[in-house]
Every structure is written in C-alpha cells, then in structure tokens.
Write a protein that binds this DNA or RNA. Structure first.
Ligand SMILES: [Mn+2]
Ligand SMILES: [Mn+2]
Ligand SMILES: [Zn+2]
Ligand SMILES: [Zn+2]
Lengths: 148, 148
DNA sequence: ACCACTATTTAGAATAATTCTAAATCTTGA
DNA sequence: TCAAGATTTAGAATTATTCTAAATAGTGGT
C-alpha cells in the first residue's frame, strides 16, 4: 500500500477542520458527523441523538449538542432555523439554500443561491456582511399534490 | 366631522385583516399589534408579553402566543427565526429582509429583498414556491467597530 | 512510562420556549 | 334572551436547550 491509512475525503476533512479550530478529533464528534452525512434530511439535535445511539449507545444528549456546536464552529455543519421548532443541522457545506414545506415541515437542499455580489445588497454604513441565507417557503411535491 | 370614527391606517388594517381571516378583533390582539408597532426591534414572545402588560396587566403569556399566531395567520406579522433562541416577531409587512448581528444578536430591517423572479430559482418538479426569506448575517456597526 | 494539565464527555438538574388543558368570559347571531 | 362558538386565562405539561460538577481521556514534557 502506498499510504498508511487512506481516509475518505469527508473524514480527513473532519480531522483538518477540527484541527484548524484547535478542536480534538473524538469518536463522538466523528459519529455525529457520520450521522449527519448518512441521512441528509436536516435532523434536529434530538434526532441526531437517537441515530448516533445506534452505534454508540453511551453517547449523551449534552455531547450531541457539544459536538454539533463544535462541528458548526469549525465550519463542517450549518445550523438551519426555519420555524418555532427545534434547530436542524445540515452537513452539506456546498453553497445552497433550503426549501421548507410549510405543510409537512420537510426540508430540501436547493443547489442554488444568491451571492452577495449578485444580490448587490446595500447596507447602511458600518454593517459588515458575512453571508446571506436564503430560505424558500412553499409546498413540497407531496403536499402540493394533496392541496389540489 | 366627515367620518364617524377615523382610524389610523394600521388599526383599520388590523380590523380588516382579522376579519378577512375570520378572526375577531379583541383588545388583546389590538394591544399585541400595538406593542409590535411601538418598537420595531423584533421582540420575542416574552418581550411582547412584558411590554403588553404595561397597559394591560391581566394579559397572559398564552394569550400573547395566541395573538401572535392570529396576527401571523392573517398576514399582519411575520415570524423571524434566526438562531437557536426564541422566535422574534416583525410587524413590518413591507417586503424586507433581516440583518442579524452574530455578535450581539440584534436584528435590523433591510429594505431590500430578492424577488422570486430576480432570483430565478429553479426548483425540482412539483415544488410550489410561496415566498423567499433572506437573512443577512454579519456584524452590526457597533460590533464591527469593537471587532477592530 | 509517569505526571500534570486541559479538553471532552457524561448524567442529571436547571432553565427557557412553547404548547396544551379545561374552565371562565365574551361575542354573535338566531 | 339564549345557545353556540370564539377567545382568554392560569397553570400544568412538554419540548428544546443550557448548565454543572464529576469522571474520563488525550497531550506534551520529563
Ligand atoms: Mn442543507
Ligand atoms: Mn423586520
Ligand atoms: Zn410537504
Ligand atoms: Zn452587534
């Protein structure tokens, strides 16, 4: 073998991102990130907890919150807040927006965004814009069909 | 006097909007809407409750939630969810987006939006787009100054 | 390898945010 | 005036998130 331990791109990305933020690589953080990548349906912290427990029964809710915060902090996961309910988490760091079905609450990635330049947002003096978040609201295919 | 009881535009708008949604005009709903118009700083339900109590000491938290929901339902108030904290409420129904300061959590109205046409969002077959919500993240003037 | 230091995890308590429940009050329209 | 339905209310219940303090694990220096 050429390399001692070849890693999947997502794993090595986890390692480097955590390292860059001065955070350690831990089994819990790996597991939480894995759970998010396994099913990219924008789960809540609670759902991540339940899924993570399958392969790691000792993991705690506090740790799930800690891990999610760590992954958000090092730029591997995005927080998605779309309604009064629990925050959702998205491991897709590609530039994309979210479609939220107001009827059933499901969330879909939409691979299209409006860039700050394109949007040409004029902010009052002093504001420093970091990024633009676009949330699309409407009906998902299923709910749109039922609505007719 | 020409008209029997001339109303401020916002009040009559409250009446007609509620009526159009089959909802009654009540002192509590009027008060909650008034609180939101008084200080458009995007307060949380809890903050609305505290402010509403000044002129209406008997109002309850449950009623504040009920009223906010009624006002949202009839199109007089927008819900604004920007982070893991409590939902905020905005009585400005003009098309606008929100600037959220990631440092201090303050929210500002930005009178500029990306229209669905302008954005030219291409959704997969079956999705029905109702509206686009744009949230700007960054630093407010105060926090930007401190950051330097 | 041993140790001290710090980061992380953990269970559970605490707090915050929201929803629910059932009874009281109010409004509307026969 | 009365019945039906809408709304409000206090408080309990539930859900979401944060905090605390002790246990565990990882790191760097010797
Ligand atoms: Mn996503
Ligand atoms: Mn606003
Ligand atoms: Zn749906
Ligand atoms: Zn700020």
């Amino acid at each position: 073998m050429r390399t001692a331990s070849p890693k999947a791109p997502s794993e090595s990305s986890l390692d480097t991102h955590l390292a860059n933020s001065g955070l350690r690589v831990t089994p819990q953080r790996q597991r939480v990130h894995e759970v998010l990548r396994e099913k990219m349906d924008h789960p809540t912290a609670d759902q991540v907890f339940l899924r993570a427990k399958n392969k790691m029964p000792e993991i705690s809710m506090a740790t799930v919150y800690n891990c999610l915060d760590a992954l958000v902090q090092c730029g591997l996961v995005r927080q998605v807040t779309l309604d009064r309910g629990a925050t959702r988490y998205c491991p897709n760091m590609q530039d994309h927006s979210h479609f939220y079905c107001d009827a059933c609450g499901s969330v879909y990635d939409i691979l299209q965004t409006i860039s700050p330049e394109e949007a040409d947002i004029k902010l009052p003096r002093g504001f420093r814009l970091k990024n633009i978040e676009t949330n699309l609201h409407g009906l998902c295919p299923d709910c749109a069909a039922k609505a007719k």
